[in-house]
């Protein structure tokens, strides 16, 4: 394998929300590096700042402290339009709540990012179709998301996230609204995208089984990264980890 190429480099990232008298420090001193082709699971109790971190990495939010480099560029130097282009081309988002646009077909949902990329309608249709075939929904092109199961909806959302062929997939609790079976299928899909297409996957999950299948885990507790390393076996499920229970970094 060639030299690992850094995709995300976070240095001392912090995010503070002004809240009346006292500021709310949701993230502090977060530093890590994720290389191209990695598959990383982020764990941590509810309210620990995982989503906030995902929004920062996804350039939807800006850090109040520290720097973030994406594909070698300090995102603080980018304009609003450049950030939009970055989200469009480099990043694909998958949300817990699917966030598909209602009253439109699966195909239209998937084609939407291509519209913002300025792709012609014809080409859009073709590529959206390919993306839906990639997630196993080639036969459901014109279905409205309202008439699909949760697993199918999330697959439409994944097709939408990969349609611009991004190098990074950011998935915030993508299986949180799915039953176990559908959750497994979605996870398998991420693994395939990572293995076959070389897409870097960063996913937030509460599911220890999913986390264990990732090659690397980041554990966020109370706005700080308390563990960064390979999955640890025999650990209690992350949801019941006490914020104080710090996990020693792996050797």
């Amino acid at each position: 394998m060639s030299e690992p190429e850094p995709l995300i480099v976070a240095r001392d990232l912090g995010r503070t929300f002004p809240m009346g008298e006292e500021d709310l420090r949701v993230l502090r001193g977060v530093s890590f590096r994720i290389d191209r082709g990695e598959y990383v699971a982020i764990l941590g109790p509810s309210g620990s700042g995982k989503s906030t971190l995902m929004y920062l990495i996804g350039c939807l939010d800006t850090p109040t402290e520290g720097t973030l480099e994406l594909a070698g560029t300090d995102v603080a130097t980018l304009t609003d339009a450049e950030l939009a282009a970055l989200r469009n081309e480099v990043i694909g988002f998958v949300f817990q709540a699917f966030n598909l646009l209602p009253r439109t077909t699966a195909l239209e949902n998937v084609a939407l990012p291509l519209r913002y990329a300025g792709v012609s309608p014809r080409e859009r249709r073709k590529r959206a179709k390919e993306a839906l075939e990639r997630v196993g929904l080639g036969a459901r092109l014109d279905h409205p998301p309202e008439r699909m199961s949760g697993g199918e909806r999330q697959r439409v959302a994944i097709a939408r996230a990969i349609v611009t062929r991004p190098s990074l997939l950011l998935c915030d609790e993508p299986t949180g609204n799915l039953d176990q079976r559908a959750g497994r299928e979605i996870t398998a899909l991420f693994e395939r995208l990572n293995a076959e297409d070389g897409v870097t996957v960063v996913l937030v999950t509460h599911d220890p089984l999913i986390a264990r299948r990732a090659r690397r885990n980041l554990r966020v507790v109370d706005g700080e990264i308390l563990y960064d390393g390979p999955p640890l076996d025999g650990l209690p499920t992350p949801a019941v980890v006490e914020p104080s229970a710090s996990v020693p970094p792996a050797a």
Partner: peptide, 16 residues
């Protein structure tokens, strides 16, 4: 509002 957020996440600029 949520739809607007989703569109921004998918690459829509403010002017879009």
């Amino acid at each position: 509002t949520r739809e607007i957020g989703v569109r921004r996440a998918l690459g829509a600029t403010r002017s879009d």
